[in-house]
Design a binder for these strands. Structure first.
Lengths: 290, 290
DNA sequence: CAGGATGCATTAGCTTTCCTGATGTGGACC
DNA sequence: GGTCCACATCAGGAAAGCTAATGCATCCTG
């Protein structure tokens, strides 16, 4: 179970091809074949079907574990290496809806405090932010999601539990203006089982909601919130969104959620070992978590 | 960052000696020396001081990561391998205070249902149960601890979040009979900051409490609850314990906890991939979590 | 249905890695 | 200052791992 073998296995499982994996990893196809054979021999189980190449039951399990393990290995390396890294830079990642006024204010403040602080900002989907923060590629990650009030977010692996609450605000259902619900003062998700939702994995994935049985009428691949609200306004479906995103908008209505009680919550993830108070990341952490 | 190297590094860090680690791993001292050198070269940082041999700052970080990674690696192997294991055995682990009437009942029931079910029981400290369950050495682990009502336990790595609530009962402070608090109907932990506690890492470690500032007067190494209650009764110090453990006892008093609101909670950990309903582990899970 | 193309498996041979056993070296203790 | 102890280093050989060439299915095409 050498990481080398795991990396190769993941590559094969993802590409669905030995040769493609070989190319991706700069090996020959022969080497990949031998590595997979070695792994299967070691574990005593076939991991991939050939022709077509696809993970078996056992292979799927291994794939899940391997992806996490490889990320954690990277994270460990980053943590150990970081010790003597030169401070003074700040790499911050956010999911689209994690951006809000307090974040903006904190960022303004820290950049004013330490002029010409080298800053990098990455806006991407939840998975990407979580792994990039875990590996230390980002110093800080701001992620969002919906949960019961004051419950922590359930993050994908390898999201670690050191996350800090940044903001919480009510969850609302965004509906187009003409919609029958538009004038309601409250709505229950259960009443919306028949409605069509917009599934936007990169923005507000409702698979992660602590509710199920909702149907998606439209899938939106992207990490951009304005497009999503635009889609709702145009009547393509409903979306569960944080209240602040819709305040002041006149082209769609926000209906407060009655039950289940859900809030939109933003949490801060820290890269392993960003504990040095001199680091800008620590300062920003302090600004964001009062 | 080969697991081989990590394993060696952990061995050296734990034994504090290259030669001892070599012996433990069935290598020569030379090999160990080279492996550590390779690891340090790879990470670009000294990990151990020599003479005496002790982990550096970076080494301590690596040690933490490595221990977790190695366990998770084992867990992955167990998960993948298990697929075709013959069912019919049940290996259950518990921390001492996780044992209670419902557990006893469930165990009786399952052994009655499937006669001559090969059963193994391990009672040990929290860490041991958690890692043994994660690696698949145990099918199920019952662990206990104190938290705010209905909050999950904060388990040590690599405790995974798939744990299930089994029981919850009030937390009480155990005091000897003559103690000034013995007749109180409620007490706050804050009022006990000056009291002496018994620290029993194997039974009810108060480092894990969501409170701090408590002082230990006596350390008790062992995984046996009766000895602990005996120590309290003999006036060696106080202990935070589940209420059920003390009901009916006349040699010491149980004072309910006013604040913080804490409960004693028992959770069930499942080995990776114990999902086959035919497994006795699944049956026991069903019995324990109504 | 034949022939070619595609893609994984196998083999041979070479390079690299890694372990052993022997030897070197520096600090601690007497 | 000598001796011991423990880690470092070195040389040699075994094992592992990669490349390149080849083998053998399957699938596609005309």
């Amino acid at each position: 179970m050498d990481p080398h073998l795991l990396r190769t296995f993941v590559a094969v499982a993802e590409t669905g091809s030995f040769s493609a994996a070989a190319e991706r990893l700069n090996f020959t196809q022969s080497a990949v074949s031998q590595q997979i054979a070695a792994l299967e021999a070691d574990l005593g189980t076939p991991l991939l079907t050939r022709r077509p190449v696809a993970p078996t039951e056992a292979g799927q399990r291994l794939q899940r574990h391997a992806k996490i393990l490889l990320v954690r290995l990277e994270a460990a390396r980053a943590d150990v290496t970081r010790t003597s890294a030169p401070p003074g830079r700040l790499a911050l990642g956010l999911t689209p809806l994690a951006w809000s006024a307090p974040v903006a204010a904190a960022l303004t403040r820290i950049r004013a405090e330490s002029a010409r602080l080298s800053t990098r900002l990455l806006v991407a989907g939840l998975d990407r932010i979580v792994t990039a923060t875990a590996t230390g590629a980002l110093d800080l990650g701001l992620v969002d999601g919906f949960t019961a009030p004051s419950d922590p977010l359930r993050l994908p692996e390898p999201g670690d539990p050191r996350s800090l609450r940044v903001t919480e605000c009510p969850a609302v259902v965004a509906v187009p203006l003409g919609h029958p619900l538009a004038r309601r003062t409250s709505v229950d998700l259960a009443d919306l089982a028949d409605a069509y939702w917009i599934d936007a994995p990169g923005v507000a994935p409702f698979q992660r909601l602590p509710v199920d049985g909702l149907r998606a009428g439209l899938h939106y691949d992207g990490a951009e919130a304005t497009v999503l609200t635009g889609l709702v306004a145009a009547g393509h479906g409903l979306a569960l969104l944080p209240e602040w995103l819709l305040t002041g908008r006149t082209d769609l209505a926000a209906v407060p959620l009655g039950s289940p009680r859900l809030v939109h919550r933003v949490e801060l993830l820290r890269a392993p070992a960003t504990d040095d108070p001199a680091e800008p990341a620590s300062r920003l952490t302090a600004l964001l978590t009062p």
